[in-house]
Amino acid sequence: MTNRYQKTFEQCKNENRIALVPFVVIGDPDIEISIKIIKQLIDSGADALELGIPFSDPIADGPIIQAATIRALHSGFKISNLEKVFNAIREYNAEIPIGLLMYANLVMHYGMEKFVQDCAKWQVDSILIPDVPAQEAGLITPLTKKHGVQSVFIAPPNATPETLEQVAALSQGYTYLLGRVGITGTHVDVETPLTDVVNKLHEHNAAPLLQGFGISKPEHITQAVITGLDGAICGSAIVNLLAQSLDAGDELTKTLFKLDDFMQSLKKATYK
């Protein structure tokens, strides 16, 4: 199976920049608009996509992503919509890596193995289950290995050296580096660079490091470049921009224009 992540990170390296990975919630505010938003993200230079599946009880997420989740569920999002969404994305772009973020209960309910198999079928590249830490990895990794889907794990700044070693060994495609403690989208400023954690992960040959949490403006991406990371995931800021624009009653074209504008400002900061 082609490793889309590898290709993407190589390309970024050749272009002397780090990867920009936007995060949005599938089905926010509804399936049709959500697909258009994802296509816009691709047009605006996303190097990979990180897509959240709406869950009723997202304990790792702050108010902005929670609100997106609720909008999606209220508009009638069903897990059975996923096939349509991924088909639409793959028809539009066959090369971009797609990462899924999905809480454990949804995956279990779907059937762990069936879900991993379907991810392979939908050409989804990676699965991140935010409430499955490295010590519970046995729940998912035998299945992802079997079906050729990559499983992503999170390296938090407070992890023990043992956990970082485990995460480095487990995480495939990329490693999700937490920029700080807390939940998504709740702090304004990114804290000091995570040199120790980064060094430790490099020591153990971790998959490329993408920083999530606290990437909400170009300066944060500049900092990620300085820290020597391979990319940055921007979630809450994008979701918030979409929510505010839709709330303000903007036409979709105007919302997508604002989104493009913001993506361009982030993209510029990815160059070394």
């Binding site: 935010p130 499955v132 830490p133 519970e136 794990f153 999170i154 023990t160 956990t163 995460v167």
Partner: peptide, 9 residues
């Protein structure tokens, strides 16, 4: 222990 990695410590 199905919680975010952050809370493991």
């Amino acid at each position: 222990r199905f919680i975010p990695e952050l809370l493991v410590p």
